[in-house]
């Protein structure tokens, strides 16, 4: 019984090898992921346009923001401005505050250089829309002690 299995497996293997061999020889170009050819400017414009879409919903805003937070970069002020305006369109103030907090966190060790610049650039928009920065809300320092989730 096992002999039959072995023999069949062997023949199956052989035939599959015979099939794949010419294919390998023919297709010398690899189908792998390509390096991104997008320039920084195109990237910024893409995300600005993404947040500027008139009928964007909260789901998509969160997706865009979360994606940006997963990347090795700090978003340009113009992206942040577009995102703030998108938050205004879906009426979610806390979303805007959270994104500013996340950007501050993205600045990492250069928070004293990059974050003031971004705030300075987006300040007119914040004033226009009435968005408070995390600092104005007192969120730059821990406000509440850690609640234990099991203490209820």
């Amino acid at each position: 019984m096992f002999r039959t299995v072995l023999v069949r497996a062997n023949s199956a293997l052989k035939s599959s090898i015979n099939v794949t061999k010419p294919a390998l020889a023919l297709g010398s170009s690899r189908h792998m992921s390509k390096e991104s050819t997008e320039t920084d400017e195109e990237f910024d414009n893409r995300y600005e346009a993404y947040f500027n879409r008139a009928d964007i919903d909260g789901w998509e805003i969160r997706r865009g923001m979360n994606d940006l937070c997963g990347m090795d970069l700090v978003p340009e002020p113009k992206i942040v401005i577009a995102a703030m305006k998108a938050c205004r369109r879906v009426n979610d103030h806390s979303l805007a505050v959270r994104f500013i907090e996340a950007i501050k966190d993205k600045c990492g060790g250069k928070v004293n250089e990059i974050y003031p610049y971004i705030v300075q650039e987006i300040k007119p928009t914040l004033v226009e829309l009435g968005i408070s920065t995390p600092e104005e809300l007192g969120y730059d320092k821990p406000e509440l002690a850690l609640e234990n989730i099991n203490d209820d």
Binding site: S94, R98, K104, L137, L146
Partner: peptide, 26 residues
């Protein structure tokens, strides 16, 4: 949003999020 007070904004934030960045990173 300019008519919202700071307390209202903070209440809205806490309705959406449990901890601020500085809190959960403390």
């Amino acid at each position: 949003w300019r008519k919202l007070s700071l307390e209202e904004k903070k209440a809205l934030y806490r309705a959406s999020f449990r901890q601020t960045f500085s809190e959960f990173k403390a």
